[in-house]
């Protein structure tokens, strides 16, 4: 798949400094720090309840952090509302299928472009290669929640990319997909990175993580347990221990 022309805007890097999130007395995230270079790809793994989705929620302004800073290209975006963070270029995808259910595929994409301020032919040109690659192009008139699950999921990813992000935060993009469908996630990630997008990917599918991510961090009970290349990190005893008995074990073995 070819990157669309003119898509690469001024790409920036995301920096998270000492991020913390507590709900009442419950510590969900503590002292999380990492950085994403332009076009970089960072995997985030960890057992359920480790705080992975909360991390995405905090970065995108859905929940305010209890401490720490989030910088985008040097600009402090901590505590900004979701729509503002999105307009600045940090866009997420969702774990469950997330489309505008009653709307057609075309309307879905058109809304994503309009809401992000990118309506017009350039926007469509940027998204077109993804629609073609996922087989969505011939189904533009179909209602999105009538599509097969896998396609709904890919539409969700496409919508996030349509919002013209500099940094994409993907929340378990492969969850619920058939094995054969999971390579589409690879395709998606490769495409958006080629367009200069930085990607943070939260994922349970360890094959996919190993395939895609040059670098991962392991979250456990809200703190960073380990960081480094997947082969190295996944061999560590404490990481394995964190996963023993955890739900992800089955997923990984599959």
């Amino acid at each position: 798949m070819e990157p669309a022309a003119g898509a690469v805007a001024g790409v920036e890097e995301l920096r998270v400094e000492n991020l913390a999130k507590r709900f009442g007395g419950l510590r969900v995230l503590e002292g999380i720090s990492f950085a994403l270079a332009p076009g970089d790809l960072l995997g985030v793994i960890g057992p359920n309840g480790a705080g992975k989705t909360t991390l995405i929620n905090v970065i995108t302004g859905r929940t305010p952090p209890s401490g720490g800073r989030i910088l985008l290209g040097g600009q402090d975006i901590t505590g900004r509302p979701t729509h503002a963070v999105s307009r600045l270029g940090v866009v997420r995808s969702f774990q469950q299928t997330n489309t505008f259910k009653a709307a057609s595929v075309r309307e879905n994409v058109s809304r994503a472009l309009r809401f992000s301020g990118g309506a017009g032919p350039q926007g469509w040109a940027r998204v077109a290669p993804l629609l073609d690659a996922f087989g969505l192009a011939p189904r533009l008139g179909e209602q999105s929640d009538k599509l097969p699950y896998g396609l709904q999921k890919m539409l969700g990813l496409t919508l996030a990319y349509a919002a013209n992000p500099k940094v994409l935060l993907l929340d378990e993009p492969a969850a619920g997909l058939e094995r054969s469908e999971r390579t589409r996630v690879d395709e998606f990630v490769r495409h958006v990175r080629a367009c200069g997008c930085s990607v943070l990917i939260v994922e349970h599918d360890m094959d996919l993580v190993r395939r895609l991510c040059p670098r991962i961090i392991v979250l456990d009970a809200g703190v960073v347990l380990a960081e480094g290349p997947p082969a190295e990190v996944l061999a560590r005893q404490d990481v394995i221990a964190a996963y023993v008995g955890a739900d992800a074990a089955g997923d990984e073995a599959a």
Binding site: S86, N98, R111, S116, L159, A163
Partner: peptide, 9 residues
């Protein structure tokens, strides 16, 4: 889908 709309800007 209010949450999605907001996250798209």
């Amino acid at each position: 889908n209010e949450v999605l709309a907001e996250s798209l800007g």
